[in-house]
Amino acid sequence: MSRQLKFNIFRYNPQDPASVPHADTFLLEETPSLTLFIALNKLREEQDPSLMFDFACRMAICGSCGMVINGRPGLACRTLTSDLPAEITLMPLPVFKLVGDLSVDTGTWFRATNSKIESWIHTDQEFDPQATEERMENALAESIFELERCIECGCCVASCGTANMREDFVGAFALNRMARFIMDPRDKRKDADYFEVVGTDQGIFGCMGLLACEDVCPRSIPLQDQLGLLRRKMGFIALKSIFKRKG
């Protein structure tokens, strides 16, 4: 027999002076293979057309639909209701600015942070359209891709103790991104350049090591390893610079 699902959904429309933050309750009959993508669209189309939430690809590759599902940040599109109890509480991701209901403004946050950490290849080399490409070992390309798989859904940021307390913390996503550039020989930045960007309290030294980021990452990116490696590398650079100054 199918279950009757009870959704408790956070509601607030900042554009509506009459709106106050509260939770609305919706009932929905569970159907086979029901995902939160299908469920939320049904609720919008059949029960409350003002309900705000974000989806795009609905296949867990675009990162639009991060939300707090029964207390845990995750991607709504690939969450099956059959994996949840009959009562489902949905909240918007913290840290990001609320657009309305379950929809948050991740775009502005990620763009600002990517600008801050200069998330691009730094090189003086001009592109030569006639030249054969520079060679790279396939194993290295695959290692870069492994970290490049981050979809900036914001789940790691929303689950992070430091990010929730401190606005200026760049989050696990950004530290992973830096690790990706550090391993890429096309990026000509030096250790000191990386250190300036992430060898700080806003960067790797702000991480308290709680590692919820790794637990909630829907892409299973090895954040724990990357944070550890980055901390060691930045610590080493810091020590080196102290000795250099003394010498």
Partner: peptide, 18 residues
């Protein structure tokens, strides 16, 4: 071919010949 190499120049981790 130019566009592919250009993307590589900008950081695209294309899979490579082994």
């Amino acid at each position: 071919p130019i566009a592919v190499r250009e993307a590589g120049h900008w950081g695209m981790p294309w899979n490579r010949v082994e």
